[in-house]
Design a protein around this nucleic acid. Structure first.
Lengths: 302, 302
DNA sequence: GTCGACCCACAAGCGGGGGTTGTCGACGGC
DNA sequence: GCCGTCGACAACCCCCGCTTGTGGGTCGAC
């Protein structure tokens, strides 16, 4: 037999009121029930907690020690319940956010700041991944939510578009188009595109290639472009690319961004999460996404 | 309704085994009982703690948080019980020891050292009082046990003699008896005794006066002697006294101790405590007293 | 696809323990 | 001395925690 919290609650009540009868009122049971339960508790512990006289009740030394522990334990139980509720509400805990490079220049820091402001006890952990790995990372529970431009949404994965990132032309600093207020996409038809292979970032790839096709040409691809060396390729004059406008926040050396004229191509950045056991903070995360989009006037995209 | 430790124990079992069925074996109930209790716990918290599939059980984020808290709480409950038992056994806690000056030179420090050695988690607090205040201090629960030479033992007070302190003659440095190997008590018959009034220390007073009467004379008392100025009176050559031999450890300036010849008078130092609600460490204290008396070869007195 | 193994939830019934009422003895105060 | 109050003891009751029995759902074997 082990002590129960109910017995601790009773014991604390008796100790505080120094009386079984008065404590009985506090905990809404008869005095006899208190006597029984305290006796049971003492039997379990093998220790006399209270000295009873017919006039009053006093704590023994062991009772005083146990009383302090009981108070701590009961308080801890209450806090544990509140904490569990807060975690379930997504207001407390640790949310692992994976993101692709498209989100890193503007969306992710803004989200992190607003999330920290609205839910200060919700710690966000971030890791960068390639868009191709989003679903696997989610499914293997190595992240709770991801920010990425997506094309396909397999079963078990849910999404909501956070914003439509505008695409701009990234050209070498000395390029003839550099500095123009807006250029038509078709003027890049004879350029080589420093575009990542589709396997690395299908959503981004399709957005760029799709935009070019919409402008009436099939882009020529540099098949050595992969990861960060695509930037180097542009800066070195070996080609161009379409990139998210927010890259302007951290523009690499040697590259100039040129706005595109209508219809401006875009890249939809989605929040993506598991359908089955979503992290409880995912709704809070989406709330913050929506609030941020409202404040910034981000286009909803589609 | 509030969670109970039983439900936490069940929840921890299920979480650890990741299975209701296997956990049921651990806690010796049927799987259905576990399902019921976990469900009840979830209802109380208003939070889903476990994700059940027909193949396996997994913790939700809230469940993981609550699991950690449950482990802490259950461990705390176990420790609280052990702590209460240790306090009841007198091995842990705080023992308030009151003592008279007779004990301070030798008995109290020796007891403190051995007590700290044998029961390191039992903290001893000490305070000096006059023998006349022993019973009141005990009864008002301002101390748990006292070390003092006692004469009367009112109802509700118990005692055990710790040792018999030998008495020696305290004389001024230049006194004719100073330096003798042993003197007969009767040689102090014409001296003035710097003895505290009986109201301050009846046990000590009776021991000294009784010894003198046993030697065949009634001691002349200096009725200005009271407390520490008795030492000053002796040092100033205004009289003598009988004092505990252990005063030699901290002999005041100007005073010499002279051994007395047979029958050597003594002063019985008693441990005294409440009969009704004794502090649980009192038996341990008495054990240490007995052990110390054995080691030091202290006379048992009587 | 089908069968079987396994796992958890639901349902019904039992039994014990925690609750109740009733009563007593002990102590203090008027 | 009497009454008021307090805690303990006793008897009864009923809720709830446990049991057994069953069903539905998923995964693996063939």
């Amino acid at each position: 037999m082990e002590p129960e919290l109910r017995q601790m609650r009773y014991f604390v009540a008796v100790a505080e009121r120094r009386s079984f009868t008065r404590a009985a009122d506090d905990v809404y049971v008869a005095q006899q029930a208190l006597s029984q339960q305290i006796k049971a508790l003492e039997d379990i512990l093998g220790v006399r907690l209270l000295e009873r006289t017919s006039r009053r009740v006093e704590l023994t030394a062991a009772g005083a020690a146990y009383l302090a522990d009981c108070r701590r334990i009961l308080a801890a139980s209450g806090r544990a319940a509140q904490h569990a509720r807060a975690v379930a509400a997504g207001e407390v805990g640790r949310l692992r956010v994976a993101y692709t490079v498209s989100a890193v220049y503007e969306t992710l820091p803004a989200l992190g700041a607003l999330l920290a402001e609205e839910f200060p006890k919700l710690k966000m952990e971030t890791r960068e991944i390639f868009a191709a790995d989003v679903c696997r990372t989610l499914r293997e529970e190595r992240c709770d939510v991801a920010l990425a431009p997506m094309t396909s949404y397999p079963k078990g994965i849910l999404r909501r578009t956070v914003r439509r990132e505008e695409l701009m032309a990234a050209v070498p600093d000395g390029h003839p188009l550099a500095g123009l207020p807006a250029v038509d996409l078709v003027r890049l038809r004879d350029e080589t595109f420093q575009l990542w292979p589709r396997e690395m970032a299908p959503g981004y790839f399709d957005a760029v290639v799709g935009a070019c096709r919409g402008a009436g040409f099939e882009p020529a691809l540099d098949d050595t472009a992969s990861g960060s060396n695509a930037w180097a390729g542009i800066a070195a004059g070996r080609g161009v690319n379409l990139v998210v406008a927010s890259l302007a926040h951290q523009l690499p050396r040697g590259i100039t961004l040129v706005p595109l004229s209508e219809p401006r191509p875009g890249l939809c950045l989605d929040a993506v999460w598991r359908a089955d056991h979503p992290h409880p903070a995912v709704p809070r995360f989406l709330d913050v996404c929506a609030e941020l989009a409202r404040r910034q006037g981000w286009p909803a995209g589609g």
